[in-house]
Amino acid sequence: MNENRYEELLKTQKKLIFTPGGKSMVPMLGDRKNTVVILPVSEGQKIKKYDVIFYKRDNGQYVLHRVIKKQKNSFVLCGDGQYVKEYGVRRDMILGKLDGFFKGEKYIRMDSTSIVIYSRLRVASRPVRALFCRAWHLVKRAFRRT
């Protein structure tokens, strides 16, 4: 899509429907496997911890990641399939919020009980995943040297 096309669609159509690529939101969203529905975020609308937001980085890259912490003037984000935190995501970078996604032909809303429980577990387990991944990288590096 052209630059600013997403912003234009969110503004005019009040929704954005596409199939995102990448593995950063695995296991909730597979690489080009789930059609997602993004709704625009109005000015006064609150962005909460555990929300999955669609935002544009300062380098122009569009990203769909989860809010894992709210700070005074920004948000801390992380993909469900990642463990490295992204700091400094400002409100003005946020274009929309994930309303839900399709798993097969079933529409899974982000406020459904299963997703609410999953979101909390995913965020809570991030430090453990980070520890495990770093340990795994060290083991792999050690084996490469020997």
Partner: peptide, 9 residues
């Protein structure tokens, strides 16, 4: 009307 699964490719 939305495409889901393989149709979305």
């Amino acid at each position: 009307i939305i495409a889901v699964g393989k149709a979305a490719e």
